[in-house]
Write a protein that binds this DNA or RNA. Structure first.
Lengths: 241, 241
DNA sequence: CCCCATTACGTACGGCGTACGTAACTAAGA
DNA sequence: TCTTAGTTACGTACGCCGTACGTAATGGGG
């Protein structure tokens, strides 16, 4: 082990004790660190989250942060778990499809509050404490569904995948515009113009016909919430009786 | 416009001419640049792809690359389009579900060949030339399906979302292990141990029961290809008659 | 033929993740 | 109670990164 007590062995951050027995009491907590990182990401985008920024934000020296978070990757894991704590789980109603749709709506709202979340969501973070609470609650909602447990987990994964992809699409233009020196409208404008010119080439007749009805962009004037509900409901309809 | 001819205005890289009329003939092409970036990402991971590395790889000065690619983000866009060219489109059979499943299998194989692809896939890249070819072909396969065109695009998006999420899950442990100084087995070991200890706490009874059958990990001994087919087929089953 | 847009690219700046060394601190063991 | 070993805090430094900018070379259009 190095002088600073920073291990280079495989570990999961959640199994690390927050407080070791021996030395001075830690001046910070994982919660406050995660909260600061989330604050920065919400305000300025995920690319503004750096070890230096977060450390400064909680009033610590940069390298002190490494006593709490072994790598930046683990900081991301903390962030995802922190916002996963925002779910409000209510008792299952008995209608598992309605319950899962309500959960999916919560996920969508969560991602709109934290637009960096879809990008950061990774299957390897899927076993953080709050992720486990989420899975447990999902299984509780799925109690009335008579399929093997393994398939229930598949169902939850499928729903979450659909939700993540859907909301990523909703947020994509805005997120990209925030990271670049021009506005979302300008971004949308050049993309639409490019697409229009390609479609006018006649190489993609079916696509041209398909987008001629609506705008080609993910949500020009549509009620996104309604489309979202419909997509998730359709997926849920593929399971069970 | 700056001295170097590098615009800071909104634009889509695909609408930029590869060759301007005036000066010396460009020594490189977008294709070769994208190919080099893909080569690096395949061999050493997406985080090894830097403007310096790619420029050096094609035998150019670092800043020369900016004559071809205005920002690193656009390099990613080139990469995604480049590998999207690996699809082999065959004539629709008339069975749209089979055709779309075959396409989904190709996507899965593509992502296994280029494990960085799921991470990089972004809805804003969805209109690159090869993405348009893909969409056009998908619509061709969906000709027998009698639903509005807009819904067909929704269907394609839903399938791709499911595929991306699924394969990201397949690759997650391996990709994370490659980026960290330990092996996939070690990574899997510590994650499994952590999960086991949490489940043993009794806080998640349903989850504990659900994972007691199989291992908790995405694919311990399962036939992933079969599970994949089943997931996609189920989704396809939710559409049409 | 010559002008000037365009290509090529070296230098430099501010930021990043993080290895490492050192000093201050405190709980556990003698 | 005193020692000591493990822990926290954090400054410094290294090697990367993306990219702004300035300058020299190049070659097609008027």
């Amino acid at each position: 082990m190095t002088a600073g007590g920073r291990p280079a062995e495989p570990e999961v951050i959640w199994s690390r004790p927050q407080r070791a027995g021996r030395g001075p009491r830690p001046a910070h907590s994982r919660e406050s660190i995660a909260a600061e990182a989330v604050r920065i990401a919400d305000a300025e985008g995920i690319e503004a989250v750096s070890m230096r920024r977060v450390a400064a934000g909680i009033g610590a020296g940069t390298m002190s942060l490494y006593n709490y978070v072994p790598r930046k990757e683990e900081l991301y894991e903390l962030m995802v778990d922190a916002v996963s704590g925002e779910y409000e789980f209510t008792a299952p109603t008995g209608d598992w499809r309605a319950d899962l749709l309500a959960l999916a709506r919560q996920t969508r709202a969560l991602m709109h509050r934290h637009p960096w979340l879809p990008r950061l969501l990774s299957p390897v973070y899927g076993f953080s404490p709050n992720a486990l609470r989420y899975l447990e609650h999902s299984l509780e909602c799925l109690a009335p569904l008579d399929v093997p447990d393994a398939e229930k987990l598949e169902l939850v994964a499928a729903v979450n995948g659909t939700v993540a992809t859907y909301v990523a699409g909703e947020l994509a233009l805005a997120e990209r515009a925030r990271a670049l020196p021009w506005s979302e409208d300008e971004e949308q404008g050049v993309r639409t113009a490019w697409l229009g010119s390609r479609l006018a080439s006649g190489e993609y007749p079916r696509l041209a016909a398909a987008v001629s009805g609506t705008g080609p962009v993910p949500g020009a004037g549509l009620d996104m919430a309604a489309v979202f509900d419909r997509s998730v409901s359709r997926l849920l309809g593929a399971w069970g009786a």
